[in-house]
Amino acid sequence: MIVLLFLLSAIVVVAAAIKLNQYGDVISQKSSLNGMIVGTFLIAGATSLPELTTSLTAVAIGNPDIAVGNMLGSNVFNLLILAVFDFLYRRNKMFEKVSIQHRYTASLGIILFLIITSSLMLPNMIEIFGVGLDMLFIVFIYLVGSKWISNHSQATRSNSENEVVSDMSLKHATVGFIIAAIVTFLAGSMLAITGDKLAASTGLNASFVGSFLIAASTSLPELVTVYTAFRLANYDLAIGSILGSNLFNMQLLVLTDVMYRDSAITVAASSSHLLTAMLGMFMGGVALYSLLRKGVTTTWRYVLPSLLITVVYFITSYMMF
């Protein structure tokens, strides 16, 4: 019964998150607010809402392992999505056809993973008003890095404005977004609760449940986004949605630390998350290498980094299981 509820919750989360993305896109098109602000925060927040509600619920029921594992696991699974699609569409050589700005975003993601990896190695963490110092570093570096990336990507942003304008009204999109957000909140909460019970009833490691089972479920909306982008040959959208979502998820991890009052959340979480954090740093580094290299002659030589990411991900999953 628990497994059935878990699967049902995952399906509802995916369906609601896809709707959130669709409605958020319409709002970004038709709102009087700045398009970059609405798109960056509203749409990125829409695809990351399942991770947020799941992790906050995990904190509420006193399971920091699922909260931390969900965020880190979602980022790792997102990079896996990118690698798998790059492998399937290897003849198109995606990483050689995208904007240079993605290198900066990938580098920022690696730095944030490095901070989490370092904090998980420490037995204690300096806290300020109950929030770990590592989380404050994450916020600071994210803000500085985002500002730097924004200043160096003005020329490329205008090229991504060629999109089909939806016939849906702004009012319809706003109401739909709110309803979908409520559904996502409820389903995401159920996903965390059933995941917690699944770990207890089956004897599975809570870190494994959070890092892989729940993380994979909440990352499926990103999979749909990347699939659509590849079908349209819009590789900038594919990479940007994944790397941007990963940066946003790191900020949501900060929020979970604020909500978790017992201690710094990286201290309360199991040390087994260190493996996931190191995996994310490795996968991010390989993705950055793919973005930096140019002029690969053969298709199979080109796709080796993505193949490496995929193989290492499944080996790590087996080790945690």
Score class of each variant (00 low, 15 high):
M1F: 09
L5R: 05
A10T: 01
A10C: 02
I11T: 08
A15L: 14
A16Y: 08
A17Q: 05
I18R: 12
N21C: 10
I27K: 10
I37G: 02
V38K: 05
G39F: 03
T40G: 04
I43R: 03
A46G: 09
L49N: 00
P50E: 02
T53L: 13
T53Q: 03
T54S: 14
T57R: 05
A60T: 06
D65N: 15
I66A: 00
I66E: 00
V68S: 11
N70F: 04
N75K: 09
L82Q: 08
A83E: 10
D86H: 09
Y89S: 03
Y89D: 00
K93A: 02
Y104V: 00
T105E: 05
S107L: 15
L108T: 02
L112Y: 10
L112C: 07
M121I: 11
L122G: 02
P123K: 11
N124M: 06
G130L: 07
V131A: 10
L133Y: 14
M135K: 15
F140K: 08
I141V: 15
V144F: 14
W148F: 15
W148S: 00
Q154K: 15
A155N: 14
R157P: 02
S160A: 14
N162M: 09
E163I: 13
S166G: 06
M168N: 12
K171P: 00
T174G: 12
G176P: 08
F177P: 10
I182P: 05
L186D: 00
S189F: 01
L191A: 07
T194E: 04
L198N: 06
T202I: 03
T202D: 08
L204R: 08
A206R: 15
F208A: 13
V209G: 06
G210F: 07
S211E: 08
F212N: 03
F212C: 04
I214G: 06
S217Q: 04
T218A: 11
T218F: 10
S219N: 10
S219A: 15
L223I: 11
V226M: 11
R231D: 02
R231E: 03
D236K: 08
A238T: 08
A238N: 11
S241C: 05
I242K: 12
I242Y: 10
G244Y: 07
N246C: 04
N246F: 05
L252K: 04
L255S: 03
D257Q: 06
I265R: 06
S271W: 01
L274C: 00
T276Q: 09
T276K: 04
T276A: 13
L279N: 01
Y289E: 00
L292P: 07
R293G: 00
T298H: 11
T299A: 02
S306F: 12
S306T: 01
T310C: 01
V311Q: 02
V312R: 04
F314L: 04
I315F: 14
F321W: 14
